[in-house]
């Protein structure tokens, strides 16, 4: 035992800050929120145990919960493929060997660094304003753009566009993945007369599958958690007509606007379960479409 401590102490000491942070700042609130999700709690009086009351209400009577789910799913289904496609397209361009590639990598990554900030969300609101840059650009080519952000039909697309613009981090991962595909596979395909598109679908995509899978899972989780851009652009309400009522926006409002902390906790746990189900499904199906180079047989 003494030897074990002596040998491993440095490791645990290095781990300590994280452990302290996890137990004090994360694990506590996590467990507390689980407990609170079974209570009615307005942050003023003590929480009152109501069993599965919050969950029952959520699934049977709360129409805004279903609306928030619908908006969020809609967004996930649009934004994740859009962002991944954008990221892959840019990564493939960069992989073709541009000069000063390091600079471009940094520049292309910039939107992702900025994208999460409040300022960019505000900027985005102005871009997609009825008289914003986007519509002015469209006007040049003779298209009369809609009032993107006040029209419930189109508001989500402004957010999808923002998501696409933040392609940086999956792009870097794609780029690394593309770099890992041996050049001579393409040369062999070239000599065999394989058209570019078939090279892409039959060589690039299958060999990139592990990376696509990784990006897909990560970006989907990310998309489910989208908050600040939706919150800012919809002025914190999810308007117009709840078309931007993202799950997290709804959750935030329940918690900090209406002080239904117990209900908000229940919402948070349901989101966690949804994400867990998605991730598990992705992992379970991955063996049918993800090829790993060093897979055991």
């Amino acid at each position: 035992m003494k030897r074990f401590i002596a040998r491993n102490a440095p490791g645990y000491i290095f781990l300590l800050p994280w452990l302290v942070g996890f137990f004090l700042l994360a694990l506590g609130p996590i467990l507390a929120s689980l407990y609170l999700s079974f209570t009615r709690y307005d942050m003023v009086s003590a929480p009152r145990w109501i069993g599965f009351g919050n969950y029952e209400y959520m699934f049977t009577r709360d129409r805004r919960f279903w609306k928030a789910l619908e908006v969020t799913f809609h967004y996930v289904v649009l934004a994740v493929p859009a962002r991944l496609a954008m990221a892959l397209a840019v990564a493939m361009l960069l992989d073709k060997g541009l000069r000063s590639i390091g600079l471009y990598r940094a520049i292309f990554y910039l939107p992702s660094l900025l994208g999460a900030s409040i300022a960019i969300a505000i900027l985005w609101r102005q871009l997609f304003d009825a008289h914003g840059v986007v519509n002015q650009a469209l006007a040049y080519i003779g298209i009369r753009g809609p009032e993107w952000l006040t029209n419930p039909e189109t508001s989500i697309y402004a957010l999808v566009a923002l998501a696409m613009w933040q392609f940086g981090s999956p792009m870097l991962i794609f780029l690394a993945g593309l770099r890992g595909i041996p050049r001579d596979l393409y040369e062999a395909a070239e000599i065999d007369g394989t058209p570019r598109w078939r090279q892409f679908t039959r060589i690039t995509l299958p060999l990139l599958a592990p990376v696509i899978f990784f990006n897909l899972v990560l970006q989907t989780i990310e998309a489910f958690k989208t908050f600040s851009s939706a919150f800012i652009i919809s002025n914190g309400t999810g308007a117009p007509a709840d078309s931007m009522l993202f799950y997290t926006v709804y959750l935030f409002n329940e918690a900090f606007k209406f002080f239904r902390m117990g209900y908000a906790s229940a919402l948070a746990w349901v989101l966690l379960i949804i994400i867990a189900i998605f991730t598990a499904t992705a992992f379970l199906t991955s063996k049918y479409w993800v090829h790993y180079e060093n897979e055991r047989d």
Partner: peptide, 15 residues
Amino acid sequence: PASKRELSMVFQSYA
């Protein structure tokens, strides 16, 4: 282009 030259190539790495 390579594909029109009616040749085959065997690579060192097998490819």
